[in-house]
Write a protein that binds this DNA or RNA. Structure first.
Lengths: 222, 222
DNA sequence: ATTATCTATAGATCTATAGATAATGC
DNA sequence: ATTATCTATAGATCTATAGATAATGC
């Protein structure tokens, strides 16, 4: 009998049928995401994941080699979903600074919806074996790269004041991380701000324009 | 014999001598910080902490009731140190916008030096029992409050354009979190920026002034 | 007597696997 | 025969405590 393991998405499996691997792993990931969000990675047992996914602990280990494998699959799935939504948000946005404001608005709303998933990445990336941790971190930067493109275009077209490459890159990191900030300070921020407040104020703070109309608001002076 | 536990810093101990408690707990915290940074909270054993602190596992449990107690003591110590450095940095700064730039500069340098400690808070706060998690999170916000004061004064004195309270508060959160960003994206940012670059560019991005001279730089146009 | 410390281990997991069983197709 | 699944458990921890010992002062 053939016992050689297959490699799918860089994670080893003993199951031959690739479609089955994909289907079962989706079950594993769905179950694990929920449990990890609720109890954290370390306090979730592989047995709980197997139960929630609807099969036995023995079967679970046919589809992954270790518990860390599951965490990696979870992080990867979350990144896929983030990247998908953000790409779509950016492609739908208009031209010019107004379009940037729309894109930021959409991005912040994606962060708002994926709150728990983003938190999970922040908290558990460190629990991955270093080779995979690197991969997950690079994914984070990849999303920042999407904003770098938008900003670079606006800077080149004159819609934004000309900015050095390094300024553009850091501004893109700021946008990305201020979206994350809503998730990891939400327990506090939500006392004072709705997500709409948050988007409006942030947009005015760093673009100086209104997030919906795209126009500079009248200056209030002391 | 008196077996009633004492409460010191809200953590129970069986030891009567308060000075001894303080001394031993400092040993425990110093040992634990290092181990937690290296391996994470869950992968560090209480036995390793006891060994590194220089006494037995039995003694360790005379000074704390549980492993979570140790994590709380660690988080609290880190907060104390952060708050101390930031308060000092703010009090040393000049008046006006230039003083704000100096304060931000000092704050970012504190984040730079306390890199690993800040990361630890981000990663392990979730592992605390909820009552203590709340306390640690409030500590984070307390540091933001220090910047709220500075910004409010500048806004009132006219050194900064007048800003609504909600704008001030969010701007303070932004400053705090962008300091943290340097720690959790440093693995990437440090490829392109020194901490000095980072401070200069961030200051110009959100104050529009040079971080050292406190003056508006000449505008570069495309 | 009282306090602090240590040794030894109970008790409770939890991951990962071995080996049996069921299902499917030649 | 081959593939997928399950049950049962080996083996390896790890936290927290009980009970013994050492040190200190009345």
């Amino acid at each position: 009998m053939d016992h050689s393991p297959r490699r799918t998405k860089d994670v080893l499996t003993l199951i031959k049928n690739p479609d089955l691997v994909e289907r079962r792993r989706r079950q594993i990931v769905d179950a694990a995401v929920e449990l990890f969000i609720e109890k954290g990675f370390h306090k979730t047992t592989t047995r709980q994941i197997a139960n929630a996914a609807g099969f036995s602990i023995g079967s679970l280990y046919e589809y992954v080699k270790s518990k860390e494998d599951i965490l990696y699959l979870v992080c990867d799935a979350i990144h896929e979903e983030m990247a998908h939504h953000v790409t779509e948000a950016l492609s739908r946005a208009d031209e010019g600074v107004k379009g940037l404001a729309e894109a930021i608005r959409e991005y912040f709303l994606v962060c708002h919806r994926m709150n728990d998933h983003i938190l999970l990445i922040y908290q558990e990336t460190q629990s991955l074996p270093s080779q995979w941790r690197k991969r997950v971190l690079e994914n984070e930067v990849q999303i920042t790269g999407l904003f770098v493109n938008v900003l670079a275009n606006l800077s080149a077209s004159g819609d934004l004041p000309f900015m050095d490459e390094k300024y553009i890159e850091l501004a893109a990191h700021n946008i990305t991380v201020l979206g994350h900030m809503w998730t990891f300070r939400r327990w506090f921020l939500a006392r004072h701000y709705s997500i709409e407040d948050y988007i409006n104020i942030q947009t005015r703070l760093f673009l100086g324009i209104d997030s919906l109309t795209g126009t500079a608001p009248p200056k209030e002076e002391a």
